[in-house]
């Protein structure tokens, strides 16, 4: 049946029809030739958009996590202040002739301290500030607090089981010490 179309008598096309038909076909061919390029371009754009969106989501998630951690830290700080078992100690200190202060919020319920340091002279290279618990069993390291600049520092620390009777701060070598050897910044009984 494939050849049945040629059973029909031919009809000679108008002479001008050929140019019109071929021009139409070529134009369609050119349009069609652009499709793969257009599709590829669209795919690239879509992939780029998807990649950017994924990257952006990652950035926003990181930002969200960072803000959530900060909010939790602030909530924790507030808890130190407002809990019934909280006690505040404020110690004026002088470092290298500069007046500063150490503030300690103690929480007897959670057995944690919140320590803030303001106005301390920045450490010279190779030195750090170190805070110590004074207990009936001796002196124990509480916190190594490097201060390379004058920015106020704040830190939460756990309190040892032994009864803490006092607190002290010294200047120690870079990684801190197991026992206080350096210059005493302050020492105070609680």
């Amino acid at each position: 049946m494939d050849w049945l179309g040629m059973a029909v008598r031919p009809r000679m096309p108008r002479p001008e029809l050929k140019a019109a038909v071929l021009a139409r076909a070529y134009a369609a061919g050119r349009r069609r030739a652009w499709w793969p390029l257009a599709a590829a371009a669209a795919l690239v754009v879509a992939l780029a958009a998807a990649g950017y969106a994924q990257w952006r989501v990652g950035v926003l998630r990181g930002e969200r996590d960072r803000l959530a951690a900060r909010a939790a830290a602030l909530r924790d700080t507030l808890d130190f202040v407002r809990r019934p078992g909280s006690t505040v100690y404020h110690f004026p200190v002088v470092t290298a002739g500069k007046a500063g202060s150490i503030t300690i919020f103690t929480d007897s319920q959670s057995r944690r301290w919140l320590v803030t340091c303001n106005g301390l002279t920045p450490n010279t290279p190779g030195e750090v500030y170190q805070i110590w618990f004074v207990t009936a069993r001796g002196v124990r390291s509480a916190l190594v607090m490097p201060m390379p600049d004058a920015t106020p520092r704040i830190a939460a620390i756990g309190v040892p089981d032994a009864a803490v009777t006092g607190v002290m701060m010294t200047v120690e070598p870079d990684s801190g010490s197991t026992e206080p050897h350096g210059t005493v910044v302050f020492e105070q009984a609680l």
């Binding site: 029909v8 031919p10 000679m12 029809l17 071929l22 076909a25």
Partner: peptide, 19 residues
């Protein structure tokens, strides 16, 4: 090859138009 389409036209256009 665009000229090939023109040659095909010369070959079959009368039959397509007739059909």
């Amino acid at each position: 090859d665009e000229t090939a389409l023109g040659e095909l036209y010369d070959q079959v256009a009368p039959w397509i138009l007739g059909l």
